[in-house]
């Protein structure tokens, strides 16, 4: 994707179905090794989870000064990625809703490799008001 100016994320203007950044990268052996070491699993087959496809697609379009907290992830696995092959990712905003007056969005991404193999579908439920959660976890509460 061309290096375009990032838009400031405005929750009210975000549209359900809005396309986020699509991009390509080549999975390297180092990415795979780092991922496996970080999760302490020498056979972990989906380093794509460490690339955070949906959040990356979002970050390629938006600058989000308020930030986000990950309320949940949903992932479907189809084929492990292969080191050295290109991974093509497309992302979109799948949903947007208020819960107890707190703003959430659901972003999702689909990854396909250069041979057309479907690798992974991933979505993230994001609370777009992280300070709300911070109040629960603030040091004094520990």
């Amino acid at each position: 994707m061309a290096d375009t100016e990032l838009k400031i994320f405005d929750y009210d203007k975000a549209q359900i179905g809005e396309e986020l950044g699509s991009y390509e990268y080549t999975l390297t052996q180092k990415m795979l090794d780092d991922f496996r070491t970080s999760v302490d699993d020498p056979e972990a087959p989906f380093p794509t989870l460490g690339v955070k496809h949906d959040a990356t697609a979002f970050a390629m379009v938006y600058d989000d000064p308020i930030g986000t907290v990950n309320a949940g992830n949903e992932v479907e696995f189809f084929n492990p990625p292969v080191v050295g092959k290109k991974v093509h990712v497309t992302g979109r905003i799948a949903d947007k809703y208020l819960r107890r007056d707190k703003p959430y969005i659901v972003i999702e991404a689909t990854a396909v490799d250069e041979d057309g193999r479907l690798l992974e579908k991933l979505s993230t439920y994001q609370l777009k008001k992280p300070d709300e959660l911070g109040k629960k976890w603030h040091p004094e509460q520990k």
């Binding site: 989906f46 992830n73 992280p130």
Partner: peptide, 24 residues
């Protein structure tokens, strides 16, 4: 600044990966 915590958080995707490991 964002959470008011004195620590950084581990990504939830690490827990997803751990869960995928036991499933696998």
């Amino acid at each position: 600044k964002r959470l008011g915590t004195t620590y950084t958080l581990a990504s939830g995707r690490m827990s997803i990966t751990f869960a995928a490991e036991i499933m696998r």
